[in-house]
């Protein structure tokens, strides 16, 4: 993940909007990357952090379609919609699908700046959270296959499974389980099994089928 300044991506099919709005935002000290179509944006975007200012009505793929496509591709960049039409139904759909705001042209550049700041903060927060989660996942990845089995049994169920129960279900000795448990806590930097369970829950390891470590 790049730690550079966030980028404001601007997608609008009107060249004069691209030019003047990019210039205005740059004047406010933002890094701006303009695209004249949704396709061009999809080709040019490479996971950089920042936010997306997206015109609603675009040829070929319109703003709502791009928003859906980004969701499919698991790209979480915050979106601020801008539109010259101001359709109520579109705005509702855009906001429901997670857009930051829906601005009707011509808006005040100050308003857009406020929204951009908001979007960048959200993006930053998301990235920090993801980074943290990824770090935790990385720790989990250090476990051996046998440790993973024990881990799975530890985080399953309402109450913490005792070493004896785990030993029985895996067909290994009680002492071996105790040993694995110690190694698991060590690798995941957890002080106790309840802390491990909480952490696992945080990053979404709960059920067996979600334990995709590979």
């Amino acid at each position: 993940m790049s730690e550079e300044n966030p980028i404001v991506f601007l997608v609008d099919d009107d060249p004069s909007i691209l030019k003047t709005l990019s210039r205005a935002l740059e004047e406010h000290g933002l890094r701006v990357k303009p695209f004249k179509s949704a396709r061009k944006f999809l080709e040019g975007y490479d996971g950089q952090h920042g936010c997306l200012i997206l015109d609603l009505s675009l040829p070929e793929m319109d703003g709502l379609e791009l928003q859906a496509e980004l969701k499919v591709r698991c790209i979480d960049i915050p979106i601020i919609f801008i539109t010259g039409h101001g359709g109520v139904s579109e705005s509702v759909q855009a906001i429901r699908s997670g857009a930051i705001d829906f601005l009707e042209k011509p808006f005040l550049p100050e308003t857009l700046l406020l929204r951009i700041n908001e979007a960048l903060e959200i993006d930053q927060r998301d990235r920090v959270r993801k980074k943290k989660q990824n770090a935790i996942k990385d720790r989990f990845r250090k476990m051996t296959d046998r440790e993973r089995e024990v881990f799975q049994l530890l985080i399953e169920g309402q109450a913490v499974a005792s070493s004896k129960v785990i030993a029985k279900s895996l067909g290994i000795s009680h002492r071996t389980v105790e040993h694995h448990r110690g190694r698991i806590l060590e690798k995941t930097l957890c002080a106790s099994v309840p802390e491990l369970r909480a952490l696992a829950k945080d990053v979404g390891f709960l059920a067996r089928e979600e334990s995709g470590f590979s």
Partner: peptide
Amino acid sequence: NQPLLAISAC
């Protein structure tokens, strides 16, 4: 609205 936004940005 397009040119108005351009004017506003300028």
